[in-house]
Design a protein around this nucleic acid. Structure first.
Lengths: 197, 197
DNA sequence: TTGCGACGTTAACAAAAGATAATTTCAAGT
DNA sequence: ACTTGAAATTATCTTTTGTTAACGTCGCAA
């Protein structure tokens, strides 16, 4: 199933919009390809990009005051990715979005989407869907930070996203868990020596 | 300015809806009062409540496997509070929402709101506003967990929400920062003995 | 083949956090 | 004024994490 098919089905399921009636929306979308390590959004950029990931993994990270990187989240195929600083806060992005693998996206400018929604309110449920999905994921991650230890967060990530953990360098996983790569290495050792499955 | 005035102004600013045209919306809202320590939403509850806080502070927390509480977030006057499990995931709430002070709310059932939005799409920007606001706040908290130490998170909370920190028992602040009350006490001691402002 | 560089692991030490319990503080109620 | 109980602090000890540096592994390019 192609990306547009997937999104057309989503729009039909959410809002009963027939695929034939989605032309005004998809006419404004752009396919984008990224190479491994290519930046999708750079720090300081102001474009309000929203995209659906067809293939590949993107990492959103920021540069801390001390120069280190901190990975906020990872997104992969089937998910939306959005420059949240520019879309929500209308400020230049403090985050960098970079492809960890070759990536294929279907992109739309959020400003353009807003214009389309003014004349085509029937697409509105799609916006709510993506906002709610991002909110649910953010809250779930937040919950894990207040309820679990780094080791528990790693175990859960392994059990829920084993494929992802194996596709992404450990140092980015560590950073997303809020710890250093050294600490993650120790956690792994503890897990695999003491049979504490 | 009353709560309804505030929300009418918001609706006008966001969507150009005149206060006189907001009757269909506010007719379905209910004022709610909570006493100190009273639960607004209990664990396992399925009602999809969305409310605007007129006065007071509400704490959203969950009970961990070991029986301890973990505070996910605090909300106070001027903010929205929503039972996110029931609204987003349509599952019984795993969280408890409890008043830390006497609270006054203006409440609407999310299902009712959705019905109103079907016939009154002019209110739609209000839903986007509250979703985006919650998303922005969640991402900001998430960012603090991957970029800052517990001590730095506490310092930032003090500088940004000093009033809140003074209204809420330290143990809830600690939990929201992802640490124990004992640890927070040590951080405070470090801060106030060593003049490391 | 060799050398380079990024990544993960390991080691050693310092710093911070968790767990548990005792102690102090303080507000609320009798 | 006294008692009670919850909250915060302090103390002690254990565990985990941070920091820094060294070391091994692996893929890639010269």
């Amino acid at each position: 199933m192609s990306t547009i098919d997937t999104l057309q089905k989503l729009l039909f399921d959410l809002a009963g919009v027939l695929p034939a009636d989605t032309e005004p929306l998809f006419a404004m979308t752009t396919p984008v390809s990224l190479e491994t390590n290519e930046a999708y959004i750079r720090e300081g950029e102001s474009s309000r990009r929203l995209a659906f990931i067809e293939k590949g993994v993107i990492r959103a990270y920021t540069i801390k005051e001390n120069g280190d990187e901190a990975t906020l989240l990872l997104r992969w195929e089937g998910q939306f990715i959005a420059s949240h600083d520019t879309i929500i806060n209308r400020q230049p992005s403090r985050f960098i979005y970079r492809a960890l693998e070759p990536v294929k996206l279907l992109q739309i400018d959020y400003g353009v989407l807003e214009e389309i929604l003014k004349t085509h309110p029937e697409y509105e449920p799609l916006r709510n869907f993506f906002l709610m999905k991002m909110l649910a994921e953010s809250l779930k991650m937040l919950e894990s930070f207040v309820t679990q230890s780094p080791e528990e967060r790693y175990r859960e990530l392994l059990s829920e996203r084993f494929d992802l953990v194996n596709r992404v360098p450990d140092k980015y996983i560590a950073s997303m868990l809020g710890i250093t790569p050294v600490s993650l290495s120790r956690i792994r050792k503890r897990m695999y020596t003491k049979g504490k499955q």
